[in-house]
C-alpha cells in the first residue's frame, strides 16, 4: 500500500495541519510517512499546499507527480492540481468555497460542504477536520478510531475544542 495525497488551499484553512493529522495517524498506525509542506512567501496569506505519502514500506520520493488523492480546499487549488490526479484517483472538493464541478471523468469526486458542516459542528475552524473525516472514509487507510485518537492527542492542551472537532470529523466521515 502506498497512498499519495496532495492537500491545497488558502493559508489559514488548516491545510498543513490536515496533512499533519494524516502523518500523525500514520505513525500511530506504525506506517511510514513523509509530510512535505510548501514554504516561503507563499505561506503568508497566499496558497498553501503539502504532499503526504503514506506507505507500508519506507517512502522513497516525498515529491508527488500524480496524487492518488487531491484535497482541494479552494478554487485556485483545484485549478492547479486537478489535471495531475492519477486516473482512477479521487478528488475531495470543498464545495463551500468551490462552486465549479470537476471536469475530469476518470476520477472519483466527492463534494464536501466543509464550511457549512463546520458551522454545524459548532466551530467554523473545523472545516479541515470535516474534510479529514471524509478523507478517512474515502481512503480507508485509517480507522476512524485512530484518527479520533490523534485528534484527541493533538488537542490535549485545549480539551474544550475536542467535542466540536469530533463532531466535525463524524459529519465528514458519515457523508
Amino acid at each position: 500500500m502506498e497512498s499519495k495525497i496532495i492537500i491545497a488551499g488558502f493559508g489559514g484553512q488548516g491545510v498543513q495541519s490536515l496533512g499533519m493529522f494524516i502523518a500523525f495517524a500514520s505513525i500511530h498506525d506504525g506506517k511510514e510517512v513523509t509530510f512535505l509542506p510548501s514554504y516561503g512567501p507563499e505561506m503568508r496569506g497566499g496558497t498553501s499546499n503539502c504532499s503526504v505519502v503514506v506507505s507500508d514500506k519506507p517512502v522513497a520520493s516525498p515529491i508527488i507527480a500524480s496524487p492518488d488523492i487531491l484535497i482541494a480546499m479552494n478554487k485556485p487549488s483545484l485549478a492547479k492540481f486537478e489535471s495531475r490526479v492519477k486516473p482512477g484517483g479521487c478528488i475531495i472538493v470543498n464545495s463551500s468555497l468551490i462552486e465549479n464541478k470537476v471536469t475530469r471523468t476518470d476520477v472519483k469526486v466527492y463534494y464536501v460542504d466543509a464550511n457549512r458542516l463546520a458551522l454545524e459542528a459548532g466551530n467554523t475552524k473545523t472545516a479541515n477536520i470535516v474534510v479529514l473525516g471524509a478523507y478517512t472514509k474515502i481512503s480507508g487507510v485509517f480507522s476512524p478510531e485512530v484518527m479520533k485518537a490523534v485528534i484527541e492527542h493533538k488537542f490535549a492542551k485545549k480539551p474544550k475544542v475536542i467535542p466540536a472537532n469530533f463532531k466535525a470529523f463524524e459529519l465528514g466521515y458519515n457523508l
Binding site: E32, T34, L36, P37
Partner: peptide, 10 residues
C-alpha cells in the same frame, strides 16, 4: 536542501 529541512518524517 530546503526540502530536507522542512519535511516531516517519523
Amino acid at each position: 536542501d530546503g526540502m530536507l529541512g522542512q519535511i516531516m518524517e517519523p
